[in-house]
Amino acid sequence: MRDHSDQPGGEQPEVHVERRGRAGYLTLNRPRALNSLNHHMVRRLTEALTAWRADDSVEVVVVSGAGERGLCAGGDIRAIREDARSGGEASLAFWRDEYRLNALVASYPKPYVALMDGIVMGGGVGVSAHGRVRVVTERSRVAMPETGIGFVPDVGGTWLLAHAPGELGTHLALTARAVGAADAVLCGLADHHVPADRLPELRDALAEERPDRALARFATEPAPGELAGQREWIDRCYAADRVEDVLAALLAEDLPEAKEAAEHIHAKSPTSLKVTLRALRLARRLGGLEEALEQEFRVSSAALRSPDLVEGVRAQIVDKDRSPRWSPPTLREVTDEDVAAFFAPSPAGTLFG
């Protein structure tokens, strides 16, 4: 089955839907935008997954991105910024459907194979890292970069990062750093490494055989990562529950990697940093992904009305001057009451209630 019906005038669909053999293929198809997700794409993915869940002829689902630059660079943050500037609520509707899609991926009853080649960030993590079979390549760069744009990890990212070994997830969340294949596997964001030039063969093989059998032929060991050798200082420095204490611990280390991490954190939104650390700590005590997504929906709803989201996207994406003017500009000025407000019930209601 090939589906081009959701685009007018014969244009290529933003999500290419195909059935071949035992597999259903979903290809994010906005390569010029690094396959960034919009609301239509989220709905199309949900529609296909819901239909295939009840279709016995579909035994495995394969998700990939068009082009060679990446699976998905995240949500359409330019549109979210414009919505925030205008006081709109379109982003709330988008997040509601996106987070429900993340939960659907995590609970999917059939093997869900995500080919996480190239850039996989934000919303791209949401449609891949919750799947049952997650494949990275030597080109993979996986990240939750939200603190750099005045936002907070979402799409279940707080759940994933909170359950990474030790404090690796806290390190990734606060610095917004991207990791390669070996470190993605170490952090629990991926399962297997397949060389990028073998992905087309793997993708085709899944139409005929089970994922475990196909991966037995194509999976290889990734090149060594960096984080395994840094666990000692990362676990020590990020154990604190205050961002100020994390920074002090990093600066006290006589290691260039720790001081570099501190520099990255200093550049991020002070409000986003404090809310992110609080969200991660709370996520560790939640009962499951859906509870974490509910929490993230409250946080995202509050962030939509925060000046740092508009300013962060302006500085990093729109004007690209890389000089955001955060408000408040320092960690000291972000109060406990400011942070607590992000976790208050959203006027938009709940996701699953």
Rank of each mutant, 00 (worst) to 15 (best):
W52V: 15
R53Q: 14
R53K: 14
A54L: 07
A54G: 03
D55A: 10
S57V: 11
S57P: 02
V58D: 10
V61K: 09
G65R: 00
G65K: 02
G65E: 07
A66C: 08
G67H: 05
G67D: 00
G67C: 05
G67Q: 02
E68S: 12
E68K: 06
E68H: 05
R69H: 07
G70Y: 04
G70K: 04
L71A: 04
C72N: 04
A73W: 02
A73K: 00
D76C: 09
D76W: 04
I77N: 04
A79V: 04
I80N: 11
R81P: 10
E82M: 13
A84Y: 02
A84M: 05
A84H: 02
R85S: 15
S86P: 06
G87V: 15
E89Q: 07
E89T: 11
E89D: 11
E89M: 04
A90Q: 12
A90P: 01
A90D: 14
A90T: 11
S91T: 14
S91W: 00
A93S: 11
A93Q: 10
F94D: 14
F94S: 14
W95M: 14
R96T: 15
D97A: 12
D97K: 03
E98G: 12
Y99L: 13
R100N: 06
R100A: 13
R100F: 00
L101C: 09
N102K: 02
N102M: 10
N102C: 12
N102D: 09
N102R: 06
